[in-house]
Design a binder for these strands. Structure first.
Lengths: 233, 233
DNA sequence: TCGAAAAGATGACAATTATCATATAATATT
DNA sequence: AATATTATATGATAATTGTCATCTTTTCGA
């Protein structure tokens, strides 16, 4: 019985997008043999804050939110991870309990890769280590940007940014709605505000003709207006 | 003529605190031969946002603020770097222009290490790469924490946290004042608020007996009160 | 050491955002 | 399909934070 083509890491196109591409054929084979592919339904958790991760998760399909619970019970979404992104590497590398939870915001398919093969390759294949470093460096820069946005921009500006970000990164359907639909609460948690505030601002944007809505779906109508708002006009 | 002991990386104790400790004797020698030690006076810039860095800076003495200018002209301090920390590695590794400025908040001594020897060692010595990775992973986690704090805590709580952080990390002098003295403006830029707001809250903390001040110096008087405030009482 | 400039302090006020209450709409469950 | 549950929406209000003006104190350079 032959295994399906795409279930082998060597053939997985997702690999093109992440650090795994720096692995040798042999290393990939090892990873492939030990990986476990898993389907995750929308709303389901992949791992939770404080878990000890024995490996990393490579997103093959769908989108996950990486969030952190604050003392007052609110969730702050720190990052959205989609096709090709690897989750949990930070905690595997630092050998610490993870500081984030990963929950699917759409139906997903993820590959679990045990940390042994990652760690092993890290210490043998400098190219791989550098690739991982590059990715982490990129994430760090993005995190810095988020910090600045949080402290310097208004909630309105952050929500406008979020919509443009979602449009740019996940695109829109034929009807002009964002492909990635987040609940109002998730939107609030991305920009770090109260759900009611987010809802209010969404209503306002709609009245102003900047966006349209249909149920929880949101579509960008006037990118320029949003952009102007972000820049402070 | 013999070079002073401590001006050779191999003997520099600072190295114990950072990724350089994973370098071999030979690699360190090379770094040492190409490094440039430099004194930086308080207020002086080491590098500025948008600079192309040809190497990293290892802090040997003093403290630097790493900050990012926002569109509205405010500076957000993203991190304070002190003895043993390496600045600029993110941008050297990602081969991008730096996203942060580094300015001395006290008189400093830094070693500039050209990127060639760093990159070279990265691709030869996996232990070094892993060390650097660990540090970056740690920074990333801290950045996540900052994001959550920014969005979930009040300005008051963030200022209280900042004082406890400064006390814990830089200690206090015999008179009970924080060793690291930041201007009110810098404090505001650390927690992401207006200078006037920071000043007002500092006055309030003083009235409440939580801290004492003397000029721009600040001393923690009642750690428990500050801690309670942070936790929402 | 004098005077200018910068930093710190505080009041008055406006803008932003959170919270609580409640209503309506959408979704899920039996 | 009926009902329970959850998500969305909106008003009223309070709390937080920012802005502008002004004054005092400190710092620094000539």
């Amino acid at each position: 019985m032959e295994e399906a083509e795409q279930s082998r890491c060597e053939n997985c196109i997702i690999r093109q997008f992440n650090s795994l591409r720096a692995m040798s054929k042999q290393e990939l084979k090892k990873v492939s043999d030990s990986k476990i592919t898993r389907k995750v339904k929308k709303g389901e958790a992949i791992f939770e804050e404080g878990d000890k991760l024995d490996g990393v998760f490579c997103v093959r399909e769908g989108i996950s939110k990486l969030s952190k619970l604050s003392a007052n019970g609110k969730d702050q979404i720190v990052k959205l991870a989609s096709k090709g992104e690897v989750m949990g590497q930070r905690s595997v590398i630092a050998e610490e309990y993870t500081n984030l939870s990963a929950v699917a915001v759409s139906d997903m398919e993820v590959c679990f890769i045990p940390k042994d093969s990652i760690i092993h390759t890290l210490s043998r294949n400098p190219d791989f280590a550098i690739e991982v470093l590059r990715h982490m460096a990129h994430d760090l820069k993005e995190a810095d940007d988020v910090i600045v946005n949080m402290s310097q921009k208004t909630v309105k500006q952050r929500i406008a940014e979020a919509f443009l970000y979602l449009k740019k990164n996940y695109g829109e359907d034929r009807d002009g709605f964002l492909n990635l639909t987040l609940s109002r609460e998730d939107i609030a948690n991305v920009v770090g505000t109260a759900t009611e505030s987010a809802i209010r601002i969404i209503s306002e944007f709609k009245k102003r003709g900047m966006i349209k809505t249909s149920g929880k779906k949101i579509g960008v109508l006037n990118e320029k207006l949003l952009q102007d708002l972000i820049e402070g006009f």
